[in-house]
């Protein structure tokens, strides 16, 4: 089973290459008449006894089943416990649930859009230029990965809250950030910030500045270089980053919980709504909303797998072209 988790294409190919040397049957020509026997012997020599293999495989399958497959299936089973009609009613009839779905459908794309703009800009700066503070910038981009979302949320509360630095001034101007959608958007963007930039930095570094330099010599303006040279080169990697970013943005709980004020029908996003429904003893409705989120995650996974292939392909055609 291959478990790739977003390695940059360079490593990907290195892995594939080392894989080829480990897998001995490859060099043997399968068309040769003696090959199968030889391959079989070689294989047996390299492998553990059957019972060891079977036990390990069964263990792995059981582990995956209990920890991943069953809980996910259970979400759907619970959601449909009262039939598909009730399922539909849970999702559409409750105004607070409806609002939560709409809020998430607004917050996630908005956060993704912000992070796409900032992420591309940051990755471009880091991959193309040497400047003072470059390492610091890379570290800062990674910060949201290491900071607990709850802490991130509290940081926003301390900054925008009435006891905080900006709160009193904002209130005077009648601008609402904390306990309102702007804070949810900010918190979500903060937590998902690294995805796009992290994906693009190694990609841009690998592609190198040659094509862009060529465009400059041909008299292209900066925006033309970006739209016609850089962007087409990084499009698959960028989409991949966007998809991951979106998945995380839709599911964010901790940071949003802290900054939202938990107002039903106003600042509850889908994950918060799921938690609330569950605590109100309304498990079927809770699982119904959870199933939608799970479904979105599964779609994301499928798109991600497709894009992963595209990223590698485009990188390889690039290489061949050179």
């Amino acid at each position: 089973m291959e478990t790739r988790f977003a390695p940059p294409p360079k490593k990907e190919r290195a892995m594939a290459a080392s894989g080829a040397t480990l897998e001995s049957p490859k060099p043997v020509d399968p068309a040769a008449p003696n090959a199968p026997a030889a391959v079989g012997k070689l294989r047996r020599g390299q492998q553990d006894p059957t019972w060891v293999r079977t036990t390990l495989i069964l263990l792995a399958v059981a582990f995956m089943g209990i920890l991943v497959v069953l809980p996910v299936v259970n979400v759907f089973v619970q959601a449909f416990a009262n039939g598909p009609e009730a399922y539909w009613r849970y999702l559409t009839q409750d105004p607070e649930t409806r609002h939560a779905v709409m809020l998430t459908l607004f917050i996630a794309p908005a956060a993704v859009a912000m992070n796409t703009v900032f992420g591309v800009a940051a990755a471009w700066a880091i991959a193309r230029f040497e400047f003072r503070g470059r390492t610091l910038l890379i570290t800062l981009i990674d910060l949201p990965f290491s900071v607990s979302p709850v802490v991130a949320g509290l940081a926003f509360v301390l900054w925008f809250g009435m006891q905080g630095f900006l709160g009193p001034q904002l209130r005077e101007w009648d601008i609402k950030i904390l306990f309102s959608w702007p804070a949810i958007l900010l918190a979500t963007s903060f937590v998902t910030f690294p995805f796009v930039a992290r994906e693009l930095i190694p990609l841009l570094e690998e592609i190198g500045p040659d094509e862009e330099l060529a465009a400059v010599t041909l008299g292209a303006k900066p925006w033309q270089i970006f739209w016609y040279v850089t962007l087409p080169n990084i499009k698959w990697g960028l989409l991949y980053g966007i998809i991951l970013c979106n998945a995380r943005a839709m599911g964010e709980f901790g940071a949003v919980y802290v900054v939202s004020g938990r107002i039903a029908g106003q600042t509850d996003t889908m994950p918060l709504r799921i938690d609330k429904l569950f605590q109100e003893y309304n498990s079927p409705a809770s699982f119904a909303v959870a199933s939608v989120l799970t479904l979105l995650a599964l779609v994301t996974l499928a798109v991600k797998t497709y894009l992963e292939r595209k990223v590698i392909e485009s990188a390889e055609t690039k290489k061949e072209a050179v």
Partner: peptide, 20 residues
């Protein structure tokens, strides 16, 4: 009427921090 529920102490804290 909108409702917000949570642990009593943290709810008080949120109002102090500017929950309307």
């Amino acid at each position: 009427i909108k409702q917000s529920h949570g642990g009593s102490g943290s709810q008080a804290r949120a109002v102090i921090d500017g929950l309307d």
